[in-house]
Write a protein that binds this DNA or RNA. Structure first.
Lengths: 228, 228
DNA sequence: TGCACTGTGTGACTTAGTCACATACATTTA
DNA sequence: TAAATGTATGTGACTAAGTCACACAGTGCA
């Protein structure tokens, strides 16, 4: 249950479907949900477990990823403010175990909702239902995008795209390790190291321990767009 | 509109959600839907187009797949009796273009539903809503499975699994070409040819033009289960 | 200063994908 | 029936990607 008016206002701002809901639903919504905070790098869902709650992210971010037997990882998608770990909802609806892992990246502030409320609101409330449908649909599109990437695109091009994307919000400096990049892309650390070295020799980037700086964004972008 | 009692009975048998629906919905359902037939290998949805109808498959099968710029393909999932091209529903709900291609494999008998009916029934009818949710959820799981396969498993193991699966219903004989297998797995024809040759030399299969016969299912199954 | 930990570099090797062909079987056409 | 055409498969040479084993470098702490 959430009563603080400031918090409620802040939450309504983040979640579109609440703005479209009537006051009855909003009232019962805040009566039933709980707010939690999680530090960064906290496991949220384990592959193969049953989910008892649905989490809606207010602030911070999480990622959903797969792990292979020999330890390689690939990120399926990320969850940001206003979104939810829709795979959880999917598991709640179908009673299936969670097919991946989820972990917080930045510290997370989230709403926890009981499975019974999730199901009830899906039946009762159009705005909530559309929110869930919309999310699960965009996840499906995103994961199909991952299939396309992994199956068809060369790793150097994918890495170039990745660097372009990540540098958008950080003014050309990306603070991360080769291993983290490899885990996002679903490849191995050595491959990332080698390609980064190539990009450095072609003077598109410069690298230091724990960071990459984009030095020629235009050429990197060109590379990311090359076919094959 | 469908009036023939036999057809209606047959359709209700295939679609679970109709068995769980009240007679009012069933009546309006058969008032609003139309039955169509499609031959094999008929394109159903084109990537990038808008969908105006949702198709529910009564009999036959279709596949949903991605195509790369240089012509390689990968199958995302198949649609069988009682299922629907849920990506279409997803596009209808979100107003997004279809992110892949769909084509009939066997001749298809299907129900066509207007987008307006799809949306209305999703609001009105719990059984229909749960049907859609269930389908889209299982598609999401399947596509995540494809990501896992492509990102982590070796092609020879994946091919072994594929042969095992396909031979289940056909008594050990698989009538198909290397190109078709390659398109399902998201690899190239040459790779499939070479691996099949290996498997043949290891006497797990025998191959002829247009067909593969499983000769040692146990060993092939063993190979399919090997880690990495 | 020495030590442990994490991050990166590298060679050698295997697996996978591409390209350019050659060859083999099947169906139609002359 | 032979030739022509089309489809299916085989193969070598090459590039790209993943694996393994290990070297080495930067960072922080004892």
């Amino acid at each position: 249950m959430i009563t603080d008016t400031n918090t409620i206002t802040r939450i309504i701002e983040v979640f579109d479907f609440l703005q479209k809901s009537d006051s009855d639903f909003i009232q019962s919504f805040f009566n039933r949900v709980n707010r939690i905070e999680l530090p960064a790098s906290q496991p949220i869902c384990q592959q193969g477990t049953q989910c008892s709650h649905l989490a809606l992210v207010i602030s911070g971010s999480a990622k959903v990823y797969k792990v292979s037997e020999n330890g390689r990882e690939i990120t399926l998608y990320r969850i940001g403010p206003g979104e939810s770990c829709i795979l959880t909802a999917s598991c709640i609806m179908n009673g299936e175990p969670f097919p991946a892992y989820a972990v917080s990246e930045e510290p997370i502030e989230a709403l926890l909702i009981n499975t019974t409320d999730v199901i009830r609101w899906t039946d009762d409330t159009a705005a909530w239902r559309n929110y869930l449908f919309g999310l699960i649909n965009s996840r499906l599109s995103e994961v199909i995008g991952v299939v396309e990437e992994v199956a068809f695109r060369r790793v150097d091009r994918r890495l170039a795209s990745y660097l372009i994307q990540r540098s958008d919000s950080t003014n050309g400096l990306i603070e991360t390790t080769h291993q983290v990049i490899a885990s996002d892309l679903g490849t191995s650390r050595e491959v990332v190291s080698r390609i980064l070295k190539d990009l450095e020799q072609q003077q598109m980037i410069s690298t230091t321990r724990g960071a990459i700086r984009i030095s020629n964004r235009a050429r990197l972008n060109e590379k990311s767009g090359e076919t094959q």
